[in-house]
């Protein structure tokens, strides 16, 4: 049994879909089955999932980058 990071678009409201990253279990045929856990750089380690550079760009990290700078304040 293997695990894979799969991105998901979930409806925040009827006109807005936001992304998330999940760890999904794959069956023996490689078919994606069920949600296991939210994917972060920390949570994927026990599942033996290696992050590709693309994953690193998109997947969630425990400490978001924006937290380091005030960003655009309204």
């Amino acid at each position: 049994m293997t695990f894979q990071v799969v991105f998901n678009l979930y409806p925040f409201n009827e006109s807005l879909y936001l992304p998330s990253a999940n760890i999904i279990r794959a069956d023996a045929d490689g078919q994606l089955t069920h949600f296991v856990q939210r994917a972060t750089t920390d949570t994927i380690i026990p599942y033996g999932i290696g992050l590709t550079p693309q994953d690193r760009t998109t997947v969630a990290y425990r400490r978001p980058a924006f937290a380091q700078s005030p960003g655009n304040k309204v």
Binding site: Q4, N8, H34, T58
Partner: peptide
């Protein structure tokens, strides 16, 4: 799209991702 990464739409805990 560029890297053909797997993407689901509104995946729930009880639904099959595929």
């Amino acid at each position: 799209t560029r890297h053909r990464l797997p993407l689901t739409l509104d995946a729930q805990r009880k639904t099959l991702a595929k």
